[in-house]
């Protein structure tokens, strides 16, 4: 260890100067808005901001006193877990198949990456069209098969619809990372296992999956954040949070209260709550889940 070469900056200001651009970007685009949200969560004002009043924690108290807000934590948990688990499982499966394909691999891969280029709102509308009760292709086919699809009044159907749209939208991203991960596993390892008599299934569970764990962990964090923050457009386009509040996830309410109802104080308070949850989740993931991750 002693022979390790260490590079040390002699000047006191140079490292700071080199860090400055990045620090400025983070400050302007992350800390500044976050601080704004924090400030606004303590205020109430009319829509145009002509009269601003400091109300302390009242916006937060209003949230705790709203049973529908508390209920949407459960909705969000169900939605996020479904999106993350299904999204990861399906894309891992696709990546494994794509990894084994020899002919026309580029073609399959390109097709699988396409959905990522679709905007969330468009994804929501696409799925909505397919499942529109009475009119959509899929709901029509389901009806013909004796299954009555109606996400307008059935909460489970509505949840299924937005989970499908959200998963579909994110599959490409996960797929890319899984595929890259799979391809970076040395072929010789797999071949050695095969010679030792391990069948594909066993090779997957005992070798590929553990070796993929850094990728899986990274994607888990990304997918949870995606489900929490980036899905409001899908909800807005497909269900508007309905029926009732059955698909009203936390971030959709933030968007709705802030941009549609123009209750900036209430919306800011919800963003702060959301921020705290995601920070907490990320900490948990890094402290506990990451211990099981094998970085080699």
């Amino acid at each position: 260890m002693a022979s390790e070469k260490r590079v040390v900056f002699k000047s006191g200001w140079l490292p700071w100067a080199l860090l400055a651009p990045q620090a400025v970007v983070i400050a302007v685009f992350f800390f500044w808005p976050a601080a704004q949200a924090l400030l606004q969560s303590l205020q109430q004002s009319d829509a145009f901001g002509t009269s601003v009043e400091w109300v302390g924690l009242e916006n937060f108290r209003n949230l705790w006193n709203d049973p529908t807000y508390l209920a949407s934590f459960k909705t969000t948990a169900i939605f996020s877990v479904l999106v993350a688990v299904l999204g990861l499982a399906l894309s891992l499966m696709l990546a494994i198949f794509a990894d084994r394909v020899i002919k026309g691999a580029a073609f399959y891969k390109t097709l699988l990456i396409w959905p990522y280029a679709v905007a969330p709102a468009v994804a929501g509308v696409l799925w909505l069209f397919m499942f529109a009760p009475g009119m959509g292709i899929v709901s029509y086919a389901l009806g013909a098969a004796g299954f009555e699809w109606n996400h307008l009044l059935n909460g489970t159907h509505a949840m299924t619809l937005i989970v499908m749209a959200a998963v579909w939208k994110q599959i490409s991203y996960n797929f890319l990372f899984f595929l890259a991960g799979l391809q970076s596993i040395p072929k010789s390892l797999i071949e050695a296992a095969a010679i030792d008599g391990a069948r594909p299934w066993r090779r997957f569970w005992t070798m590929q999956l553990p070796l993929l764990s850094p990728t899986t962990f990274f994607l888990l964090v990304i997918n949870i954040v995606y489900a929490f923050f980036d899905t409001f457009a899908i909800v807005d386009a497909a269900t508007k949070g309905g029926p009732g509040k059955d698909t009203s996830i936390l971030v959709y309410k933030v968007y709705y209260d802030g941009f549609k109802a123009m209750d900036l104080g209430g919306s800011a308070a919800q963003s702060v709550v959301l921020m705290v949850i995601v920070v907490a989740l990320t900490v948990v993931q890094f402290r506990f889940v990451e211990k099981k991750v094998n970085y080699q």
Partner: peptide, 21 residues
């Protein structure tokens, strides 16, 4: 006041009636 939200509340609650909940 807050009428945009009240309209949404009306939608949410009526949907639960139509759905039989």
């Amino acid at each position: 006041g807050n009428y945009v939200q009240i309209r949404t509340i009306e939608d949410e609650e009526l949907e639960q009636v139509w759905g039989g909940k």
